[in-house]
């Protein structure tokens, strides 16, 4: 990954600041979502991305507009990194008509096809076959996109994972398989659920090139993603990238977290991707503390306005119940 790191060093300040802004925005969004959930304004499940921000932001900072993105149900950060405005995300969390999925999807089912973000999927592993099919459509039509399919470590133990990885090799499909290894499938640690602890080893079984990187450093993720996407683009065949990360919150709101020690969580919090990146930006002289504080205030403002927009938005009308079931409605 040496070459990619050189490329990262040449990142212009504007892009560095954009990355910082985006990660801070996701963090703030998630904190606000937790707050709204506690107020009873968000129903259902709520899976927060706090701790994993560097993965979506690093990865999607190097995707091209023609690249399709899919992920699992922990999808707020991915939605933001795909370019969805935060107000439409929060509106969806509140079930409003203005939400990205018109209030029909909720937290786990954000999508915006105009931004080539093909959705969050809540059945573990079920979107991996979809990704293979979307990549097949590009190949079939002779279009240049790469399909970026993100999933957790837990998804790598299910049949879909193996069927989809195998098919992507047999059919030479342009997919970047990206495993966000946050080390727990709900409350079950990787070593308690997976026969191999390094998930990338599973790609070996399919003869698929792969690597495993640190997901707490946004620039490392970006560099590795650039290289991996380049490989898929050039060869038209899959690549497997395992990104090791950690979620600081429970699996979902209300998780009592009996399965891990506070010490472990605290240790990982030392590696907070936003703190690390902030320090990097200041230490390298790219930005001052004041510069970043201004950015953080902007983020606070943006989220506050988004909440205001979402709360003022209407619920879907009763007739929406019967809409969008079939293609003619």
């Amino acid at each position: 990954m040496a070459e990619a790191n050189v490329a990262v060093k040449t990142l212009d300040k504007k892009e560095l600041l954009r990355l910082y802004h985006e990660m801070a925005l996701v963090r703030r969004l998630e904190e606000e979502a937790a707050h709204l959930y506690q107020q009873g304004k968000i129903g259902g499940f709520l899976h927060l991305y706090i701790g994993q921000e560097a993965v979506a932001s690093g990865l999607l900072s190097v995707r091209r507009p023609e690249d399709h993105v899919l992920t699992a149900y922990r999808d707020h950060g991915v939605a933001i990194a795909c370019g969805i405005e935060v107000k439409y995300v929060i509106a969806e969390l509140l079930g409003k008509a203005t939400g990205v999925s018109k209030g029909k999807g909720g937290s786990m089912h954000l999508a915006d096809v105009r931004l080539n973000y093909w959705g969050g999927y809540a059945i573990v592993g079920s979107h991996l076959p979809l990704a293979a099919g979307i990549a097949l459509a590009d190949k079939y039509k002779g279009e240049p996109g790469v399909t970026i399919c993100m999933f957790g470590d837990g998804a790598t133990n299910i049949g879909y994972f193996h069927e989809a990885l195998n098919l992507s090799m047999v059919w030479d499909l342009p997919v970047l398989w990206l495993c966000e290894n946050n080390q727990y499938g709900m409350g079950t640690a990787v070593e308690r659920a997976s026969a191999v602890e390094e998930i990338r080893q599973k790609a070996e079984g399919y003869g698929m090139p792969n690597s495993r990187i640190n997901g707490m450093d946004v620039l490392e993720v970006r560099g590795a993603a650039e290289e991996a996407l380049g490989y898929v683009r050039e060869n038209g065949t899959p690549y497997f990238l395992e990104v090791v990360t950690y979620r600081f919150q429970g699996h979902s709101i209300g998780d009592p977290e009996r399965y891990r020690d506070k010490e472990e969580v605290d240790r990982w919090r030392e590696a907070d991707p936003i703190k690390i990146f902030r320090k990097h930006l200041i230490d390298t002289g790219a930005f001052s503390v004041d510069d970043l504080s201004i950015e953080e205030e902007r983020v606070d403002q943006e989220v506050a306005e988004a909440v205001e927009f979402a709360e003022a938005s209407p619920d879907p009308p009763p007739e929406a119940l019967y809409e969008n079931i079939y293609a003619d409605s």
């Binding site: 399709h68 093909w118 079920s126 991996l128 076959p129 979809l130 990704a131 293979a132 099919g133 979307i134 990549a135 097949l136 459509a137 590009d138 079939y140 879909y160 069927e163 989809a164 195998n166 098919l167």
Partner: peptide, 12 residues
């Protein structure tokens, strides 16, 4: 994956 990939291809 037969039905899943066909779903994806249909969406696309």
């Amino acid at each position: 994956v037969i039905v899943g990939a066909a779903n994806g291809a249909a969406m696309a």
